[in-house]
């Protein structure tokens, strides 16, 4: 395992503007490391999907009536690892979610991880044709998209904050071989 370079990170509320800034910084840093364009695009696309998810699914936090320990604030880190065979990318994103969302989300992630690339494509094809855009502006396709594009499993943990909230952390790791 080689040295890790943080490409971008943020803690706090995720707005559209912050998402834009994180994507810009990530692209700039990858360019500075002379990473090829197709790889930069791929990383940007996966990272965009992950941080847009935080933006959409943590938008209730400003209206939350209780208090949330600052340790459970929304966070995201993307880092690059120089490997002997190429480069590795690790993305970690965390945000509080409502306790009743834990079961369905965990089930969805487990289901995605069980599927082969070919089956993921089939599921995606059906889902894109059948899903409706939610009130939050999502199509519920984000996690499927991330798994398909990264060709890797999604690692999720859920830590209880209190009776109402759980702290959801998603990690995705993928690599690009040197040609």
């Amino acid at each position: 395992m080689g040295n890790a370079t943080i490409l971008a990170q943020h803690e706090g509320i995720f707005t559209f503007e912050i998402t834009e800034k994180l994507l810009d910084v990530t692209i700039e840093n990858l360019k500075a490391h002379k990473v090829e364009n197709t790889v930069i695009k791929k990383v940007r696309n996966i990272y965009a999907e992950i941080i847009e998810n935080i933006q959409k699914y943590a938008d209730w936090i400003p209206d939350y009536k209780g208090t949330i320990d600052p340790a459970y604030t929304c966070k995201s880190v993307i880092q690059m690892l120089n490997l002997s065979t190429g480069i590795g990318i690790e993305i970690m994103a965390s945000n509080p979610i409502r306790m009743d969302e834990v079961g369905p989300l965990k089930a969805r992630i487990d289901d995605i991880n069980k599927r082969s690339s070919r089956k993921l494509r089939k599921t995606h094809k059906r889902a894109i044709d059948e899903t409706q855009i939610s009130e939050k502006g999502g199509a519920g396709l984000g996690l499927l998209d991330v798994a398909m594009k990264s060709h890797s499993n999604l690692y999720a943990t859920f830590t209880k904050i209190n009776d109402e909230l759980s702290y959801y952390t998603l990690e995705v790791k993928f690599q690009f071989k040197i040609k």
């Binding site: 695009k41 965009a48 999907e49 847009e52 894109i128 855009i133 999502g138 199509a139 396709l141 998209d145």
Partner: peptide, 13 residues
């Protein structure tokens, strides 16, 4: 397209 996110993909379809 250079890129479209998953929410946009529904509209592209």
């Amino acid at each position: 397209f250079d890129y479209f996110n998953s929410a946009s993909s529904k509209y592209v379809l």
